[in-house]
Each structure stands twice: as C-alpha cells, then as structure tokens.
Design a protein around this nucleic acid. Structure first.
Length: 326
DNA sequence: GCGTCCAGGTCTACC
DNA sequence: GGTAGACCTGGACGC
C-alpha cells in the first residue's frame, strides 16, 4: 500500500535532448542491468526499449526522464524527453544536458578497457557477454547514500525492504507522460523526520540515526557528485567518510570515481573467480583482493567489478562455479 | 512454535 | 594503532 500522503509532482513541461555516444554503447543492457540494478530508482518503468525514470539534481529540483536509443550498439543515438514542472531556461537545459551525458557514461572510450581482453581471459569473457554495457552514475547523491547504508550488515532482501519502505513512506510520486514513478526521499524530508519514525516505519534499526545525520549534512553544505569527481579519489572518499555511518565500503559505492567496492559477498565471488575457493574469512580477503584488482585492471577495475556482478550466471557456467549462491 | 544465529559494515571503548 | 563487541531486523535453521 503506497502512502496516501506521498508528495506528488505533476510534470507537464517537456523538452527533447539527443545524444551521440562513443561506441560501443548498448542502451538496454546499460539501463536495465542483468543483475536487476536500476538507473535511478527501483520504481522506474522499462517497456519495449524505453525507460521512464526520474532524477533529483543537486539544487533539489525533480525531473521525469523518458529515455530510448534510436541507433545501434556501434552507433547509438540516445533520445531523452525531459519533463519538468516549469519551462526550462537555456542555462538549465545546458546543465541538464551535461548531467545526463555524465550519468549515462556517453563519452567514456571503453575500447581501452576492452583492449585488456587481449591478455586477460576474464575480461575477454566479460566483453563477449556484456558488449557495450556502461557503468552509469547517479546525480542524486542521497539516493546512493541510502543504498550504501541499507546494504550494510543485511541480506539483500532486507536491504530491499528498507529501501522500499523509505520510498513509500518518505519518497515522492512523479507523474509525467502518462506514467508514475516513485522516487527517493529528499535529504530535507529525512532531516525533518524523527529517528523513531524512521526506525519504526522503515525498519532501519541502528541505521536510522545515521540516515538522519547524513540528510542533515547534505542540506547544509556538501559537494555534488560532479564536484566529488573533480577531487582526487582519496579526497572524495575522505569527504564521504565524514558522513555519519559511511565507512570505506560505503564511500567506495557512493564515490563517482571508479572503485572496487568489495564487501563480504563480492569478496567471496572474486575469491572463487581468482583462486577457485571460497575464503574462510572473506572480510579479511577484501584488502588483498583490492590490491590485486588495482594491479591487474588499474583504472578499469570498476568496470571489471560491475561486469562480473552482472554476469554471474554465465561466469558460473564458464568456470564451473556456483557464483550466484555464495 | 520457539530459540539461536548471523548477514553485501561502522563506530566506539578499551588496551 | 589495533581490535573486540555492540548494533536493528528478519529469514534460515535446528530442535
């Protein structure tokens, strides 16, 4: 049951943007990842090659997005019809155009990543299985922080439960183009909520205090994801780790710099892939595996990480391992 | 049914 | 500086 009082945006103004991409670019597998990861919200809608989703930018403004690809993997032509609650000024359109290019990873030349396939068997398999898939980014920092916080110390079903309750209890309903997309709560809304309310309604447990603390920090003064990307990776990570409840793993997930955000679950997967055995203490393997990844894949380790976690079924068959139930 | 264990980390107190 | 223990909740498991 969706909260009746959920704030509703009815977005009626629209503008169309078109984007060329650096090939290869597979739109469908990029926005609808095989592992089920969403682009911007778990409640976005994907039908017949078109994605209806939403976005909150750093200023707090909310937009509806209707995205599709009119081209091919080797010559993608992305169309975005962008919905807003008022007519956009030229400078806002320019800013949103840049944000979308950044979010959708339209300008990265991944042929340099694919070049690793020449000498790396794992990369060769990943490229064959997921040719043209991109790592997308999110302009809404708070939604990434919610994801990181709810992934901590919880099985995935419980994380999903917490995220879903947060959206339904404190999120927003965004209507445009005859569709309705439920979207993440704003930092301002969570900053106003009581800790007890977050614990009780969203079953956040000890994470409730951290989430409220993060929301309060974000509404005061905190860099945007694009500003974090302009910092050196260590500085961006340190800035994120100033937030309550955000440690090294969560900062790796949230940082726009490509990282290797290993947790206990993914450490088991990479141990199986690289050594063929499940470690007795996966938490102790994390720092070792991170060093190996940096040495073997360098700046493309984030791509390897995302490709592996979206290719577990194929990799399980290829290497005769059970990677889907570690 | 009921009790116990523990999970896709982080923080803090203590040494 | 390093490390054990606490932390919400709910599903899995053994009895």
């Amino acid at each position: 049951m969706i909260e009746a009082a959920m704030f509703t945006h009815n977005l009626t103004f629209s503008t169309v943007m078109r984007f060329k991409t650096v090939p290869p670019y597979d739109f469908e597998v990029t926005v609808q990842k095989p592992a089920g990861w969403h682009l911007a919200t778990p409640y976005e809608i994907f039908e017949k090659g078109t994605l209806w989703t939403a976005l909150r930018i750093h200023s707090g403004k909310v937009f509806g997005l209707k995205l599709s690809s009119l081209g091919t993997i080797d010559s993608a032509d992305i169309s975005c019809k962008l919905y807003s609650n008022e007519k956009l000024e030229a400078n806002e359109k320019r800013e949103l155009h840049e944000t979308l290019k950044w979010m959708l990873d339209l300008e990265e030349d991944i042929t340099r990543f694919y070049a690793l396939a020449k000498h790396d068997t794992l990369v060769r398999i990943l490229v064959r299985d997921l040719y043209g898939m991109r790592i997308t980014k999110n302009a809404d920092l708070f939604s990434r922080l919610i994801l990181a916080l709810t992934l901590q110390m919880a099985p995935i079903k419980r994380s999903d439960q917490m995220m879903s309750l947060l959206i339904k209890e404190f999120g927003e309903r965004i209507r445009f183009d005859g569709k309705e997309v439920l979207y993440w709560p704003s930092p301002a809304r969570i900053a106003k909520a009581q800790v007890g309310e977050l614990e009780e309604k969203c079953k956040l447990g000890y994470r409730a205090k951290s989430l409220k603390g993060i929301a309060e920090s974000l509404i005061k003064d905190f860099p945007s994801p694009q500003e974090l990307e302009m910092m050196v990776p260590e500085e961006a990570k340190a800035k994120l780790m100033e937030l309550k409840g955000i440690g090294e793993y969560s900062a790796d997930i949230v940082s726009p710099h490509p990282g290797f955000a290993l947790d206990v679950w993914s450490a088991k997967i990479f141990s199986l892939l690289l050594y063929g055995v499940k470690p007795e203490s996966p938490r102790d393997e994390i720092s070792k595996l991170k060093k190996i990844a940096e040495k073997r894949w360098g700046r493309w380790r984030g791509y390897v990480f995302t490709y592996v976690l979206n290719d577990l079924n194929n990799l399980s068959t290829r290497f005769n391992l059970n990677l889907t139930e570690v």
